[in-house]
Simulated scan of single mutants.
Amino acid sequence: MSIREIPAAAVTDAVEALCIEANTSLPVDVKAALDAAEAAEPWPLAKETLGLLQQNLCVAKEKNLPICQDTGMACVFIELGQDVHIDGDLNAAVNEGVRRGYEKAYLRKSITADPLQRVNTGDNTPAFLTVHLVPGSGCKITVAPKGAGSENMSRLAMLKPADGVEGVKKFVLDTVEQAGANP
Rank of each mutant, 00 (worst) to 15 (best):
G149N: 07
V11S: 06
C75N: 15
N95R: 00
E5G: 05
R99I: 04
S137T: 14
T121A: 07
A74I: 08
I6R: 01
A46P: 01
K140D: 13
R4L: 07
S137W: 06
C68H: 01
E41K: 00
D13K: 08
E79F: 01
G180L: 05
K160Q: 13
N95S: 02
A92M: 12
V131Y: 05
K146M: 06
L129C: 04
L18M: 13
L156D: 14
N95H: 06
G122C: 15
V98M: 03
E48L: 00
I141L: 06
E41D: 05
P135D: 11
A10P: 00
P7H: 14
D174H: 13
L107M: 10
E103T: 13
D83F: 05
E79P: 00
A92R: 03
A113C: 08
R99M: 04
T24G: 11
V76Y: 00
D114I: 07
D29C: 02
Y106I: 12
P115I: 13
M1E: 12
N23S: 10
L156Y: 14
A179Y: 08
S110P: 02
T71I: 14
T121G: 09
A9E: 09
R108N: 12
A181P: 08
R99Q: 05
G51W: 03
S25G: 05
S137N: 06
N64C: 07
L129F: 12
P161Y: 10
N23R: 04
Q178L: 11
E96G: 00
A36Q: 05
A179K: 06
L45M: 08
A32G: 04
K160R: 15
A60V: 02
D89F: 05
A148Q: 12
T49R: 11
K31V: 09
N124S: 07
D89C: 06
P44C: 09
T130V: 15
A144W: 02
A60D: 04
C139Q: 07
E79M: 03
K140P: 01
E38K: 06
V59Q: 09
Q55K: 08
T175Y: 03
D163W: 01
S25N: 06
I67G: 00
N120A: 10
W43F: 12
D70Q: 04
V134E: 08
V59C: 11
N152R: 14
Y106F: 14
T71F: 04
A113M: 11
M153R: 13
C58P: 00
G97R: 01
I20V: 08
Q55V: 08
E79L: 02
K63F: 02
S25C: 11
D35H: 07
K61T: 15
A74H: 00
D87Q: 15
L116G: 12
A127F: 04
V59S: 13
E21M: 11
V84R: 06
T12N: 02
P27I: 12
G88I: 05
P115D: 12
V168K: 04
P44I: 03
C19Y: 02
E21V: 14
E151L: 14
A22D: 09
V119S: 06
V176K: 05
E62H: 11
D87V: 11
A144E: 12
S110T: 09
V119G: 02
G81F: 02
K61N: 06
A105V: 09
S137A: 08
T142Q: 04
S150A: 09
A127V: 03
G81W: 07
A37S: 12
V28E: 13
K109Q: 14
V168I: 12
